[in-house]
Design a protein around this nucleic acid. Structure first.
Lengths: 230, 230
DNA sequence: TTTCGATTTAAACGATTGTTTTAAACAGGC
DNA sequence: GCCTGTTTAAAACAATCGTTTAAATCGAAA
């Protein structure tokens, strides 16, 4: 009985991705409330560590609702990832690369990377969730890389190719791109370590996005100049 | 009764770090077997995800043994970290910095960092455990940073200070050190992403420790040269 | 050999997990 | 207004977790 109801709901959701027609208003409210609460909890505790009880408690709904609306815990997680991809695609449009000097493009790319890493707003849980996916990849990880990382990586490689002036091997350009990404990523991956290594006073003074992006850009421009020399 | 026995054992262990005198052979065997099995399990599943049942099963001992020898799960984890620290100190001795040119010291430091990151031997679980500590810090994380990361970080900052020649602000040297560490770290943190971004043929050809360390060192030397200019 | 403390064992405890069940509350069509 | 299908609520489910308990077992001193 109840199972058939859930299965029909599940297949209905899979068929239409964008528009969802819910029978009435009340269910749509609970459903979106669960979805909104699940993201931060999954990000903070990880998939295994997160509990549906905590998610439902912060959402203010009953525990059984997640089973009714999403089938089970994994179904809810898939929906969270799906919503995350849509949200981030709109929030972080890839910077326009055509009408600037490559130095400015590089600066803009580093700025975007660092902004994604060091975001402390209400949507910081999205980055946290992506970081967890990098360490514990699930079947959705590959599509995440293709949709989010590949465009920025290609743009980065292209921009660096304009900066080295000479024709370097492809893998050298890739290494330069990874050097750029790695420097940005460290200020999130190593944030806990930095918090221990660097006193708070220095951190608040010299570890803002602006200072860090200028430093990383300077490092990469110096490297590009050096690789341009015979 | 039993509690007092355990407490005395616990304090006995804390007092003497190096030499352990166990009453008989049998207990020492079980204890070391638990310790040997716990490391890989903690690394693979994380602290919260690992279960003492699985650890004891792979060790072939009773479940209550971990309570008897280590107090509780966290006590066992602390001992694992302690043993890890001793093992890694012997396997990766900090490079001697005194009798070389700073360029060579930097190269050696980058080599050490990359070797720690990309190790694929039987002891890879140690690095995996450290990476998990960086994202999900447990109460032992701070001591890990102090004992593991701080020495290398200081050595890195000092070496970079010799390379820039001019007197730069302290935070700039720190940023340069983090740039170095970040580039090395990315080839582990982003390994899953690189596996999707770069075809396997290129990966096996140009992503060995030797190529990567030379590249990263070259980037940082170029940056230091640039920062030395007026 | 006997005795006693140290160690291991099997079993169970209480807490927490994801999930299911049963009944009540709600909406709209007749 | 009643009835049918949908949604929510409270409770309970079985499984698993870390931890504890009480008895059995072992090793060596007496």
């Amino acid at each position: 009985m109840v199972n058939s109801v859930k299965n029909s709901l599940q297949s209905q959701r899979n068929s239409s991705d964008e528009i969802e027609i819910r029978p009435n208003e009340r269910s749509c409210d609970t459903r979106s409330r669960i979805l909104a609460s699940a993201g931060p909890v999954f990000a903070a505790q990880g998939y295994a560590g997160a509990t549906v009880r905590e998610i439902c408690a912060t959402a203010g709904v009953n525990i059984a609702s997640v089973g009714y609306h999403f089938g089970d815990k994994l179904g809810l997680y898939r929906e969270v990832i799906h919503a995350l991809r849509l949200a981030r695609a709109k929030r972080f449009p890839t910077p326009n690369t055509d009408l600037q000097k490559p130095q400015d493009t590089l600066q803009a790319l580093v700025n975007t990377l660092l902004a994604r890493m060091l975001i402390t707003e209400e949507a910081a849980w999205e980055t946290e969730l992506l970081m967890r996916e990098m360490q514990n990849p699930t079947p959705v990880f590959e599509s995440i890389v293709e949709d989010f990382f590949r465009p920025l990586f290609d743009q980065l490689t292209e921009t660096l190719g304009l900066l080295v002036k000479t024709d370097l091997p492809v893998h050298t350009l890739q290494h330069l791109a990874f050097s750029t990404v790695g420097q940005c990523l460290y200020y999130r991956v190593g944030a806990q370590a930095i918090q221990v290594l660097i006193p708070e006073r220095q951190r608040t003074a010299n570890y803002d996005i602006e200072s860090l992006s200028q430093h990383i850009t300077a490092v990469m421009l110096a490297a590009c100049d050096n690789f341009a020399k015979p």
